[in-house]
């Protein structure tokens, strides 16, 4: 059973993240690749004490990184958009998830 903190890696505090937070009542996180939408939902509810409406996820392939002649990749990761129920107060991200 994955715990809250293994599911949610960190909050994504970006321009897009801030804008959807304001317009759609949606929080954005980087989550564990193996995490399911349900797990993310439970984790966010536990962490911020809010009700979650829906979760959308997206998988990202890590970008290629070169170090001299060696190529490598950044780790793949999963992003989750967590829409809160209407009327829920938007929590502040705490930077150190």
């Amino acid at each position: 059973m994955p715990t809250t903190y293994t599911v949610i890696r960190r909050a994504l505090i970006t321009e897009k993240g801030m804008s959807v937070k304001e317009t759609e009542g949606t929080l954005v996180f980087e989550v564990a690749e193996a995490a399911t939408k349900t797990e993310v939902k439970q984790a966010v509810e536990a962490l911020f004490k809010v009700k979650v409406n829906s979760v959308r996820t997206a998988n990202f392939a890590g970008k290629e990184r070169r170090r001299g002649k060696f190529t490598g990749f950044r780790p793949d990761w999963k992003k989750a958009y967590v829409r809160l129920k209407a009327g829920e107060k938007m929590p502040d991200y705490v930077n150190n998830l």
């Binding site: 994504l12 505090i13 970006t14 321009e15 993240g17 801030m18």
Partner: peptide, 14 residues
């Protein structure tokens, strides 16, 4: 300059 934001686009609260 904060990663995730273009220069000058960082919200005041942040």
């Amino acid at each position: 300059r904060i990663p995730g934001f273009r220069a000058g686009k960082v919200p005041e609260s942040l």
